[in-house]
Simulated scan of single mutants.
Amino acid sequence: MSTFIAAFAVLMLFFLLMSVGYLIRKKVVQGSCGGLGALGIEKACDCDEPCDRRKAREAAKAEREEKLNKHRII
């Protein structure tokens, strides 16, 4: 049980330090490797022509957004 309490205390200390760092610098936490941009990939799916599942997903998303915009009150 004492191991759990110590691990929890260390985790809370890291959260506290990260929040203080954010408040002082106003800089968000970010990775150091650069992600896909470091590899020269512009997007997650680097295909010229997306697959049928992706096309269907994008069409459904566009339809949902269109319905939301159509029935928006404000």
Rank of each mutant, 00 (worst) to 15 (best):
C45A: 06
F4P: 01
F14W: 09
M1T: 15
A9I: 03
M1N: 11
R64W: 06
A7M: 12
E63H: 10
G35K: 04
C33Y: 04
L68R: 14
I41H: 12
D48P: 00
Q30P: 00
M12Y: 01
D46Q: 12
F4G: 07
E63K: 15
S2K: 13
A7R: 14
D46F: 12
L17C: 10
L16D: 02
E63R: 15
I24F: 08
Y22H: 15
M18T: 09
K61A: 14
M12T: 05
A60C: 06
E66A: 15
E66Y: 10
M18P: 00
K43V: 02
D48F: 06
A9K: 04
M18F: 13
F15M: 05
E65V: 06
D48L: 09
V28A: 10
E66D: 15
E63F: 11
F15G: 08
E49S: 08
L36W: 09
F8M: 11
G35C: 09
R25A: 12
Q30D: 02
I41V: 15
A38Y: 08
K61Y: 14
R54T: 04
E58A: 09
M12A: 13
I24L: 15
A59H: 07
A60N: 13
G31R: 05
V29E: 04
F4A: 13
K27Q: 14
I41W: 07
K61M: 11
G34S: 03
V10N: 05
C33T: 12
S2H: 11
A62S: 07
A62T: 08
R25T: 15
E66L: 14
G35W: 02
M12S: 04
T3K: 13
E58W: 06
V20Q: 01
A38V: 03
N69Q: 12
F15R: 04
E65F: 10
G21D: 09
A7F: 02
E58G: 00
E63W: 13
K67N: 02
K43N: 07
R64H: 12
K61C: 05
G37R: 13
E63C: 05
F8N: 06
E65G: 05
G37M: 05
Q30F: 07
A38I: 01
R54C: 14
C45F: 13
L39V: 09
H71V: 06
G21H: 06
S19D: 09
K61L: 14
G35Q: 05
R54D: 03
F4R: 12
V10L: 09
N69W: 10
R64P: 00
K67L: 07
G40E: 08
K55S: 01
A6K: 15
V28K: 14
H71L: 14
A9L: 02
M12H: 01
S19L: 13
